[in-house]
Every structure is written in C-alpha cells, then in structure tokens.
Simulated scan of single mutants.
Amino acid sequence: MSAMNKDIEQRKAVLLTIKSEIIQRLNIQRDELQIDDDTALFGNGLKLDSVDATEIVVMLDKVFGLKVGEGDDPSYMRSINSLATFIIQKQNA
C-alpha cells in the first residue's frame, strides 16, 4: 500500500471514529453517513456547546490517547475534518 493510500485510510478511520464517538457521547440523533466531514461542530452545524466541547476533549484522551495542551490552537474544534487533522498530526508527531 502506498504512503498516500495509507494516509487516506488512516484519515477515513479517524473521521468515522470521531463521528461515531460524537454520536454516542453527545446523543446526536443522526448516523455517521448523515454527518459531512466539513460539518461545523458548533453554530449551525451540530450545534454543540461548551459542555460538548469538554466531552470532545475527554474523547480525544480516552479514544485517541491525546492530551490537549494549553498551546493548542482551539480552531481544531471547528469541524469534523479539522478535528481529524488535529488527531492525525498529534499521532504522527
């Protein structure tokens, strides 16, 4: 498998995990296929709030083994895609 295909597969897996975890943890009444990768987490997207944001940070720790640091740019929480990019960058660091 080429490096690019491996990256694509890794990203697909991370995106699916994020969606299923968010659906379960935050009680969202949709399935993974109904959530676009570019769906905003807050505002008009999934309409999450600050309590949900805390739950996402917990999910990052429990599911992906990532600690969010004070210095991390909070824009990683913008969308499903930005969250996936953040996770993959941390995992590959």
Rank of each mutant, 00 (worst) to 15 (best):
K67A: 04
E32I: 08
I87V: 12
S82Q: 11
T85N: 09
N92L: 07
D52G: 10
E70A: 05
N44Y: 10
Q34C: 01
N5C: 02
S2Y: 06
A13G: 09
A93T: 11
A93S: 10
G43Q: 04
D38I: 05
Q91D: 00
Q24P: 01
R25H: 03
L33C: 05
K6S: 09
I87L: 01
I80C: 05
L16R: 09
A13F: 07
K12Y: 14
Q24V: 06
K90L: 05
T54L: 13
F86I: 04
I18H: 10
S20L: 08
A3V: 08
K90M: 01
A13W: 07
I8E: 15
A53E: 07
S50H: 13
D37Y: 14
S79L: 09
S79Q: 09
R25Y: 08
N5F: 08
K62E: 08
I28D: 02
M4E: 13
M77Q: 14
D7N: 14
S20C: 04
G71I: 10
D7P: 00
V68T: 09
F42W: 05
K19T: 03
G69M: 12
E21L: 03
M77F: 15
I22H: 11
S82V: 03
L48I: 09
M77Y: 11
M1W: 04
V51R: 02
I22T: 08
D72E: 01
D7I: 02
A40S: 13
N5R: 09
N44L: 11
L83H: 09
V58D: 08
A93F: 05
I22F: 15
A3M: 11
I22V: 14
N92G: 04
D73W: 13
K47F: 06
V63W: 00
N5P: 00
S75L: 08
E21P: 05
G65K: 14
F42A: 06
G71Y: 12
K12S: 14
D73L: 07
I88E: 01
K67S: 06
F86P: 03
F42V: 08
A3T: 13
F42Q: 02
N5G: 03
L83F: 09
Q10R: 15
L16C: 07
E55G: 03
L26M: 14
L26H: 06
K6D: 07
V14W: 12
D37E: 15
